[in-house]
Write a protein that binds this DNA or RNA. Structure first.
Lengths: 188, 188
DNA sequence: CGTCAATTGTACCGATCGGTACAATGCAAA
DNA sequence: TTTGCATTGTACCGATCGGTACAATTGACG
């Protein structure tokens, strides 16, 4: 028996491992152990080793948010795109039981390896949300502050709901953040 | 030349290293390298090895917050204690350039080693802040929500300001959180 | 069927991991 | 000054680290 993968199949598996163990904690042996994928395959798909694996995972995550969240925020009806963002975020992070890999990498020295990608992920998120708010009639200055508050709030909810092991607090916090954003949209 | 330490001198040095490198990233060799403290001393003070070092650091952090933040929130004038909390948080986290070790440990599998301590740190923070808000005349239900929002917001600000490498965004976010808390105190 | 590149399992590498053993050194009290 | 214990530096341990080499196997295509 010999399962045959391609690179695109491997990336989501790696993502889950990096999420749970962090960059340093995700050792090659734990990766092969949890995925059943041998070193031969891994280094075939990612000749750059662990660093390339993590980079591929980050690019995959970034691409998903770009397609599912940022683009709609920039392009579609502002109200609908913002509603979709909250729904997508709730699903993607599995009500707080799944963490944000980009946020996690930002906290320790791993940041130094990937700082441009990490920064860009958040800059584009905030900017796309800000644009949507402005399109919805929000004041320019208030829009930036509200966008920062929402994105920052999501990261905080992830940390706290995980620390408390409380999915419901994640849902509550996201609901509150959504209300705040809706209020900012109107006041502006 | 042979510098002589005692356990209490070592803990803050370890704290900074765990903060920067995370639990897995903080290897014994990097610890000795950055602190200049040899393995002999480390295992003399912490016979339980790396895990005991991290536990000691967590206990130290927890103790600091208990004394400087939680107790005043429970005991002193509510308004003054809340003001002091924001000032202390801003200082302690060095305007966002220093992360919250407890929050960082909550994100990856390190959480499993220390989950009671991690949970307790946040539970007590939220509860102490909630009590202060209630004493300030805030409605019971609104007080819990406002306390959660503040503590969660701080964690988010740490993640985001570090990802963006932007101290000023940390200050801005904390100012906004403080305003929100002041508003909640009045409305109730 | 045979061909051939893509994929995979296995054995192996030097370096580093967390941890231990113990002798040498420092400091305080007698 | 001598004793005694806390503290420290060094050498060492087996296990695991990330990474490499390469032969065996696979599936797609002629």
């Amino acid at each position: 028996m010999k399962t045959v993968y391609e690179r695109a199949d491997v990336v989501p598996l790696l993502a889950e491992i990096f999420r749970e163990l962090g960059y340093e904690g995700a050792t090659l042996s734990r990766i092969t152990e949890r995925t059943g994928i041998g070193k031969g395959s891994l280094y075939h798909f990612f000749p750059g080793g662990k660093e390339e694996m993590a980079a591929a995972v980050l690019a995959d995550v970034d691409g998903w948010f770009e397609r599912a969240v940022y683009e709609p925020l920039r392009r579609d009806d502002a109200g609908a795109a913002i509603d979709a963002m909250w729904a997508n975020v709730m699903d993607y992070f599995r009500s707080g039981s799944r963490i944000c890999l980009v946020g996690a990498f930002a906290l320790d020295e791993t940041r130094q390896r990937f700082s441009p990608v990490i920064r860009d992920y958040f800059v584009r998120w905030i900017e796309a949300l800000r644009q949507a708010l402005v399109r919805a009639g929000c004041d320019e200055g208030a829009a930036l502050a509200a966008a920062e508050e929402a994105v920052s709030g999501i990261q905080g909810a992830l940390v706290l709901s995980r620390a408390l092991d409380d999915k419901d607090m994640f849902r509550r916090t996201l609901d509150r953040l959504a209300d705040r954003l809706a209020a900012a949209k109107l006041e502006g």
